[in-house]
């Protein structure tokens, strides 16, 4: 698969990354090169092989549905760029 600048613009939007128009072609070349490497996978027939999502064959551990964490909102929000009254501030979403 070879990507062009239109593909890159679409992927960048899906990934929420601003890419300057001037950089689209360079990304298209680099990402295409990586995809060519990845396409070596096609050399092996994998029909019928169970996909491996995880290296250890274990079941998802569940914990009792009980409160275990104390309220640390202030400590966690201390790292936020902008907060007010315990809320995270972002640009206006709804006019």
């Amino acid at each position: 698969m070879t990507l062009d600048s239109t593909d890159v613009a679409k992927i960048a939007h899906l990934a929420r990354l601003k890419v300057a128009d001037a950089d689209l072609d360079a990304y298209a070349r680099e990402l295409s090169k990586i995809l060519h490497l990845v396409e070596q996978m096609d050399a092996v027939d994998t029909s019928g092989v169970t996909p491996m999502a995880h290296p250890l064959h274990m079941t998802q551990r569940l914990r009792p549905d009980a409160v275990t964490e104390t309220d640390q909102r202030e400590a966690f929000q201390a790292a936020a760029p902008a907060t007010e009254d315990g809320l995270y501030l972002v640009p206006r979403v709804i006019d």
Partner: peptide, 13 residues
């Protein structure tokens, strides 16, 4: 990091 995010985004799209 941007290259890898974009490759991953593409592969999962």
């Amino acid at each position: 990091v941007k290259r890898r995010i974009m490759i991953g985004t593409y592969a999962l799209s």
